[in-house]
Amino acid sequence: MDLRQLEYFVAVAEEANFTRAADRVHITQSGVSAQIRQFERELGADLFDRSARMVRLTAAGAAALPHARTALAAAQAIRTACDEVNGLVRGKLRIGMVTGCTITPLFDALASFHRRHPRIEITLAEDNSEVLVENVRAGHADLALVAVAGGLPDGLESLTVLSEGLVAAVAPGHDLAERESVPLRRLTAYPLICLPVGTGIRGVLDQACAAAGVRPTVALQATAPGAVLDLAARGLGVAILSASMTAEVAGLRSVPIEDVELPAMLALVWRKGESAVLRALLPHCRRAFAA
């Protein structure tokens, strides 16, 4: 058995429901169920009666529950003692995030970190990627989620979480809707709807256009990808975003853009020689983004 199984067992026992327990520990319901089944096999006893609508503890589960809580409390006491030595009981963690970018693994990482270190004050601020990178370099932010064009910032540690090409998203009936791909030069003949300057996707587009010697007509821009897509769905222009941003949008057709070699990248960046607080956060980030 391990502490994760004990945590899931206590969560299901207290919530009396696998779905609510999964929400509480921030993993899937199937993941919680699988860990509980493995725990039961290791113990050689069923811990829950699953026959009723509400999950109930068996006699074995009721006997195990106080010991599981004691074990988790002891583990937390060990972490607290180590945190006190490492300076993690109190402190601040300053996070930056590119404007309009809702990346839930980052939120999952912060939530997991907060549960482990509840006295650490976390602040989160949005800005464009160029400002965020400079804030990290200057020590005004400990960690930032930034969107960059083609390469990672020099002089900083980083974790790439996404790297993909650009697509054009158009409404049904648009001239480009039935194409398998579109050359960059042809694309720039249409009014474009883009993210602002300072975002990775806009940087990729601007650099590609400069290299090809073409000048795009940016008719509209918005800080949120959803707003860019909404404008395109109303026939106001061609939305320029990354492939994953348009993958599940109903009513729009995504067309890959030719002649754009630079990827749009999303990455976490931080200074070398990070603080004890940041060292404690990074494993939560790696687990959240790996999932």
Score class of each variant (00 low, 15 high):
1 M>G: 11
4 R>V: 15
15 E>I: 00
16 A>K: 14
24 R>Y: 09
27 I>S: 05
30 S>V: 13
30 S>P: 06
34 A>D: 11
34 A>L: 04
39 F>W: 00
39 F>Y: 15
42 E>F: 00
42 E>C: 11
43 L>M: 09
52 A>D: 13
52 A>N: 12
53 R>T: 14
54 M>L: 15
55 V>S: 01
60 A>M: 13
62 A>D: 15
62 A>F: 01
66 P>C: 01
72 L>G: 02
78 I>H: 11
80 T>A: 14
82 C>V: 15
88 L>G: 06
91 G>M: 04
92 K>L: 10
101 C>S: 00
104 T>I: 14
108 D>P: 06
113 F>H: 07
115 R>E: 14
116 R>M: 03
117 H>P: 01
118 P>Q: 11
122 I>Y: 02
125 A>I: 05
126 E>N: 13
127 D>R: 02
128 N>Y: 08
135 N>Q: 07
136 V>H: 02
139 G>S: 05
142 D>I: 12
142 D>R: 04
147 A>I: 03
149 A>K: 08
150 G>R: 11
150 G>K: 06
150 G>H: 11
156 L>W: 08
157 E>Q: 14
157 E>H: 10
159 L>S: 04
162 L>A: 07
165 G>Y: 04
169 A>M: 09
169 A>S: 13
171 A>C: 06
172 P>S: 04
174 H>V: 13
177 A>W: 02
185 R>D: 15
187 L>D: 07
189 A>K: 10
193 I>R: 08
194 C>M: 05
195 L>E: 03
197 V>F: 09
201 I>P: 00
206 D>W: 04
206 D>F: 05
212 A>Y: 09
213 G>K: 10
215 R>G: 08
216 P>F: 10
217 T>N: 11
222 A>I: 08
223 T>P: 07
224 A>W: 05
228 V>I: 01
228 V>W: 09
228 V>K: 06
230 D>L: 08
235 G>C: 04
238 V>W: 11
240 I>C: 01
246 T>C: 10
247 A>L: 03
247 A>C: 03
249 V>F: 03
253 R>H: 15
259 D>E: 13
264 A>M: 05
266 L>Y: 03
269 V>R: 06
270 W>M: 08
271 R>Q: 15
272 K>P: 00
273 G>V: 13
277 V>S: 00
278 L>F: 04
280 A>Q: 01
286 R>V: 14
291 A>W: 03
